[in-house]
Design a protein around this nucleic acid. Sequence first.
DNA 1: TTGAAAGCGCTAACAT
DNA 2: ATGTTAGCGCTTTCAA
Lengths: 342, 342
Amino acid sequence: MSRKRATSYDVARLAGVSQSAVSRVFSPNGSASSKTRKKVLAAADELGFAPNPIAKSLSLGRSRMAGLVVTQYTQQNYPIPLKSALDVISKSGDSLLTQIVDASDDGDDAVRQLLLKRVDFILCAASLSWNATMECRDANVPLVMINRRAECPGVDTIGSPNAGIMKEVAELLYDRGARAPVFLGGGVRNWVSVERCRGLVEASAQVGLAPPVVLDADFNYDGGRAAMRSLAPCIGTFDAVVTASDAMAIGAIDVLRQELALKVPEDVQVVGHDDVEAGRFQAYRLTTVRQDMHTIFSRAIELAFSKARDFGRKEESIIVQNKLIERATTTSPADSSNNRTR
Amino acid sequence: MSRKRATSYDVARLAGVSQSAVSRVFSPNGSASSKTRKKVLAAADELGFAPNPIAKSLSLGRSRMAGLVVTQYTQQNYPIPLKSALDVISKSGDSLLTQIVDASDDGDDAVRQLLLKRVDFILCAASLSWNATMECRDANVPLVMINRRAECPGVDTIGSPNAGIMKEVAELLYDRGARAPVFLGGGVRNWVSVERCRGLVEASAQVGLAPPVVLDADFNYDGGRAAMRSLAPCIGTFDAVVTASDAMAIGAIDVLRQELALKVPEDVQVVGHDDVEAGRFQAYRLTTVRQDMHTIFSRAIELAFSKARDFGRKEESIIVQNKLIERATTTSPADSSNNRTR
DNA sequence: TTGAAAGCGCTAACAT
DNA sequence: ATGTTAGCGCTTTCAA
């Protein structure tokens, strides 16, 4: 029967109490005698009543909606963030408004949209201009930058040690006999890529690898292929490829094997980044870096909540450990000892 | 300056007009003299005013939010739907509330959540019980089922000809010399899988293929691997594998090549479904079926809008053509003519 | 504990 | 064309 949804007034009338009594029964800290409560609940049940969240929002001044900005790449290769964010947010009964931006764009427009929609806070996994960042502050909307740096103070930040983990990558490579790495990145506008690159360059010097040759390309499969092809004239001058994304790594491997007739990992070792599903395919078994996205997003939300409670507090900066996953695109210890003795 | 956001009253006062004048200026069909309009716009600009969508929703009785239910599989392998839906919805200034359900679950809970949030309509790409379907109707919330069937009348439906396209798949396979196909599906609770299976079975009879052996497994890479392994004792009895998803197809290919020492496509041809990114990797070059997700979602939204306009109208059922994409896991015409002559 | 009443910020019918 | 007013469905003081 599709008549209009019941309101708290309908429930009140049926239960023979005031509307505010109904409101109290449905409020976490409402006080009501168990007698009223029972009457109200019965009436509510009979009418199929549930409080209207929109009216609630208007009254409370909080929309109970969170905003999430992710790049298309993230959305495609990390099923986790969306799902994680959704789970955490839903748990408290809130909703999630998602905006997807192209990898090459910043999140400014997306954030502005979310601000217009009056979200309570924003998680942003895309770069953001100083202006857009300030707009959040002016609107008193907590902003948490995920795997990006904040353009101005007062903004919480959380992410993986994108540069730091490269030390481990460099050590692994050195240990497995590689000496001359190439880095495939996504360009200077891609923050995580820049960090990963910097990390590799610094670590290479420390562990004794040659200074990496750095190449930029699209952050995807085709980008990896294109970059690798452009390296064809240099075959023999490098023995490892480190990429800023798994998609690029997989593209690189395909070209290495099928077009350049090189063996992975015997001739060239490859390390990716992100641990996407395809990296586990038997055809690749890609050595890569996995970020703990679930923790990142869960804690990002905690940060936002705490900021909402005390908007004036100093910004926090959290780093969630990531992990190097060894698979078959780096040589096994046994093989590498052969390499090293030769 | 983080003072409270300006309301239409603030603007009205500053502009020296009534609050309703402000409302009119910001309404699509509001009438206002260009003089008032100018004053209002100036004041609004000065105060950084934008209408509060929550108050608007309460007043209008429409939340201007749409609900989307997708399975984890879809969200992971189809970046398109979310992005498409988002684009189409955003264009009209609305928001999108997404719910992700596990492949094995139905969308009932997700839909109920969305109903509580008072979305204006729901796009559901997960199966839905009769009950949940009725709850949408009772709440006067248009529901569009995407690539699933509706459990009761009055519900719009849109999707690909999941069974129909299998005729083309069967013909291709026959043409390329295959005679004995195996079908790898996702189980009876997976509607698209069931349809694709039915389509293949029917088409096989028509074009002269042997009745397909049907196997169910998880809808993903590991499922494809497991299913293929279980077929090891039957090597030689089949010459084609058709799967309900690309992920399964890729898993099957890896086992075929690496564990069963079979050649794809020479010994066994493989056809997947969905055209996921990994299918384009050079290591696979998977022949597959592509659905026009963008059109599906765009038109689904149109359906929902039209239903909202006239909730009583009869249900519509739209089919958006899909397309068989031939790549390298089916033999090329040249090879197959060899096959056929031998 | 309970009820009455004043908002929250907007839209829309009504009157001018 | 513009202003006045009554909602939309809640939460939350304030009294009782």
